[in-house]
Computed example of a mutant assay.
Amino acid sequence: MSAATRPALVLEHEADAPAGLLADWAAERGIDLEVFAWHADGDGDGAPDVAGRPFVVVLGSEASAFDDTVPWLARERALLDRALALDVPILGICFGGQHLARALGGTVSPASRPEVGWLEVESLDPETVPPGRYLQWHRDAFTPPPGAELLARSPVSAQAFRHGRHLGVQFHPEVTPAIALGWATNYPDSVRRAGTTVADVRAGGEEHAADARRRAYALFDMFRSRISG
C-alpha cells in the first residue's frame, strides 16, 4: 500500500471503548480506518507506523496518561512523538487528549472530581466544538500544552484544545448511548463516585443521542477540514 492511500490510524485501548460514531462518520465520508488494539498486543510490539497517514486518533482508556507503569504507554508515546515530528495530525479523545497534551508539553493529573454522564460543555469556539451535552467519563484532566488554544471547558477541567493541526478533547464525541450504557453497567463504582446513576446515563443517552451524533460529526468534519487545508 502506498503512503498516499494508507488509512487513518485509530489507537484503541479497550475492547469496550471502540471508535463508535467516529467509525460511522468515517464510513459515511469514505475515509478508511485502521484500528490498532493495544489491549490485544500486550506492550505494543508491532504497532503500525504513522508515516503517510492522513491522521491518527487516540481513543479513551481506563489507564492514566501520567502512569508510566502502564505497559504500552511508552510505546504509544513514541508513536505520538513520531506523528508530531512528521506533522501527522492527531485527534486525542479523553485519555487520548490527555496523552496528546502530555506529548506536547502539557500536564495530566487527577481532576478535582470525576465527570461521568451526558454533561454540558462550554464551547469557546462553537465552529470547532459545537456547544451542548457530550458523554463525559474521566477522573483525570489535562492542562492545554504551551502554545495551544483552549476551545472548551467545564466547571471541572479544560475540555478541548487545538495545537497546530492537532486537536485534543476531554469528552467523548465518539461514544454512542449503547457504549455509554455498557460502561455504566460494567463500571458501577465510577458512576457512583461521580454522583450519578446507571439510570441517569441511560436517560441521558436516550435524550441526547441525536444531538450528540450531530455535534460529533460537526467536530470530526471541522478537524478534517483544518488538517486538509
Rank of each mutant, 00 (worst) to 15 (best):
T128A: 15
G204W: 01
S228F: 05
A8T: 11
Q170A: 06
Q98V: 01
D32P: 01
D81E: 14
G205L: 02
T196V: 01
L86N: 07
L100G: 05
L11C: 10
I31L: 12
A15M: 02
A37K: 15
H166K: 07
G105C: 04
F171Q: 05
A85Y: 07
A141I: 01
F36S: 08
R77Y: 10
E206D: 13
P188F: 06
P89I: 10
G132K: 04
L33K: 05
A141E: 11
A15D: 08
L150C: 09
G92E: 06
G229N: 15
H172R: 04
D81A: 15
M1H: 12
G132N: 04
R133E: 11
D221M: 06
A194W: 00
S112N: 07
L84E: 04
S123M: 03
S228V: 13
G97Q: 06
T5M: 13
L73C: 01
F171M: 06
E28T: 09
P71I: 09
D41F: 13
Q98I: 01
E122R: 12
V70S: 00
I93W: 05
A4Y: 11
D45M: 09
G106S: 05
A203E: 15
S112Q: 13
A78P: 07
H166G: 03
V88D: 04
A17L: 14
D16Q: 11
A74K: 09
G20A: 08
F220Y: 15
W25G: 01
A78L: 11
H39V: 08
V169Y: 07
G168R: 04
I227L: 15
L84S: 06
L21Y: 04
V58P: 06
A65S: 12
P7F: 12
A203Q: 10
P146A: 04
L167H: 07
A78C: 05
L91V: 11
D45G: 11
A180P: 02
V198P: 00
E76V: 04
D211E: 13
G106T: 03
A160V: 07
P7H: 04
P54C: 05
W25A: 01
T5F: 14
D125N: 14
L22W: 13
L9Q: 06
T143Y: 02
Q98S: 02
E12W: 02
P89E: 06
C94I: 02
A85S: 15
T128W: 12
A8S: 12
D16H: 15
L181D: 13
G106D: 00
R192W: 02
A152T: 10
A148G: 11
V201N: 03
D68P: 04
L9G: 09
R226M: 12
P126I: 06
S61M: 01
H208W: 12
H172K: 03
D68F: 10
P110F: 08
A111E: 00
R202W: 03
P114K: 02
A199Q: 14
L124R: 14
H99Q: 15
L59K: 08
P188C: 07
R29P: 00
E62Q: 14
D125R: 14
D45V: 15
R226S: 08
G147W: 06
H163R: 13
P131H: 04
